[in-house]
Simulated assay, not measured.
Amino acid sequence: MAANGSNAASKATNNGGGKPSTPSTEQVVATFQRMRQEQRNMASKAAELEMESNEHSLVIDTLKDVDPSRKCFRLVGGVLVERTVKEVLPALQTNKEQLSKIIESLNTMMVEKGRELTEYRERYNIRLVGEGENDAQGQSTTASKDSEGGNPKSGAGVLVS
Rank of each mutant, 00 (worst) to 15 (best):
T13S: 13
G18L: 08
A43W: 03
R115N: 10
Q98P: 03
N41M: 04
R70N: 04
A91I: 11
E48G: 13
G16W: 13
N107R: 12
P68S: 11
E122A: 12
S154L: 06
E133C: 02
C72L: 02
L80A: 13
Q39M: 08
L49K: 07
Q93R: 06
Q37E: 14
R74I: 13
V88L: 13
S144L: 07
Q139Y: 00
K145F: 03
K153L: 11
Q93T: 05
S100G: 11
T62D: 12
E26H: 01
A43Q: 11
R115V: 13
Q39L: 13
L99E: 05
E119R: 13
L92R: 00
A91N: 06
L63T: 02
Q93K: 10
L117I: 14
T84Y: 07
Q137K: 14
A156R: 02
N54D: 12
V129Q: 14
S53I: 02
N54T: 12
Q137W: 04
M35T: 06
S53L: 04
T31Q: 15
M51E: 12
K96Y: 03
N95L: 10
N95P: 03
E55V: 06
G77N: 12
P23M: 14
T22Q: 11
L63N: 00
N134V: 09
R115P: 00
Y120P: 05
R34M: 04
N95R: 14
N41S: 09
I126Y: 07
S147N: 07
Y124E: 03
E116W: 01
D135Q: 11
Q137P: 07
I60Y: 02
V76K: 11
H56Q: 10
D135K: 11
G18N: 11
D135V: 13
L99K: 08
V88A: 12
E48W: 03
V66W: 03
F73H: 13
Q137Y: 09
G16K: 14
R34D: 15
V59L: 13
G150R: 01
T141I: 11
M110N: 01
K86C: 09
P68I: 08
E82P: 01
R70Y: 02
R115C: 03
R70C: 05
Q93E: 14
V28C: 05
N107L: 07
M35Q: 09
P152S: 04
T31A: 13
S144Q: 10
P90H: 05
P20Q: 08
A43N: 08
T31G: 06
E52W: 06
